[in-house]
Write a protein that binds this DNA or RNA. Sequence first.
DNA 1: TCCGATACTTAACATTGTTTCGTAACGGAT
DNA 2: ATCCGTTACGAAACAATGTTAAGTATCGGA
Lengths: 179, 179
Amino acid sequence: MRKIAERIEYSPTTIYLHFKDKQALFQELCAVDFLAFARVFERVLKVKDPVERLRKIGLTYVKFGLEHPHHHRLMFMTPHTPVDPEPGSIQKGNPDQDAYALLRLTVEQALEAGALRTDLGDADALAQVLWSGVHGVVALQIAKGNDAWIDWKPVAKTAERMVEAMIHGLAAPRAARRS
Amino acid sequence: MRKIAERIEYSPTTIYLHFKDKQALFQELCAVDFLAFARVFERVLKVKDPVERLRKIGLTYVKFGLEHPHHHRLMFMTPHTPVDPEPGSIQKGNPDQDAYALLRLTVEQALEAGALRTDLGDADALAQVLWSGVHGVVALQIAKGNDAWIDWKPVAKTAERMVEAMIHGLAAPRAARRS
DNA sequence: TCCGATACTTAACATTGTTTCGTAACGGAT
DNA sequence: ATCCGTTACGAAACAATGTTAAGTATCGGA
């Protein structure tokens, strides 16, 4: 707080005129981050093939997390109080503002195209697996990437392997694929 | 610190006779946790088939994280200062005390058995992908599991799907399998 | 001119990690 | 028995940080 105040050249107390407390401020910051986050995914829309788009989404997620580790930590590695009271600025379910909705939608399209296995669950189930996979790559890198205990492979490589493994693992067997 | 002091019925100062500072205390706690963590994996040794063991390792990782979320957070979601000065209590590379070594070893065995793809990297590469995958499931659950924004599937299910997808995605194609 | 709202700050308070200093207890050497 | 050093501990104080209470300056309108 005091650091922030100094940075914006105001007194610490002034911040409390705009935000109830530290948590409220971070929540707002988080909302802004989520919008920026969603905007990053606008570009993947130009990839038309659903499966290729899933690959792109995964790699984009990792790229964002690695380029903005602090934001990633705030958004995805820090529990926030039940974030109920703010359906304000960002729209759930709208793929333009809600990146999860975009992921889910793309999984749905891939399912409809018969490109993904149907025996593991619905679109939400597969979306959450994919999300978890790429999230793990970023989260481990951020939290333990500097830990000399492990002989880490380059994160970018791990991300590629992760996406390849998951997509391949979730892909419908050729027998069940309709052209 | 004061809470801890109260809990152990000593004065806060006394803690500093045993630990340099809060960080040192947490580091020690972390080391203890890692030993307990490794002990959990002793039981997977009875699974002889390397690939099945990898499945078991993954599910065990998730189980541990969900049963001890605070410890998981401390161990895998919190960056610690370069942990160099303590090759003391825990042995790197010994599968009995170092769970990553066990994972890596099992991947090696699976590779030797011709059960895993060889085009994605060596044992470390595959081990890190597998670790990241299951870690992502736990980490997302801990950090965002209470977030109503997402319609979460049950974590246990997601974990199973994750393991299934990764193992299947990393498995050697039947044509390349020997035996 | 007065008034109230607006925007901001200074000072103080509570909590928490940490350091300084003092003290009680104990074991051995004289 | 006395002295002394070590060990184990705590009370008080300090520093940093989130937060609140109270006060001040400015400005637009009645």
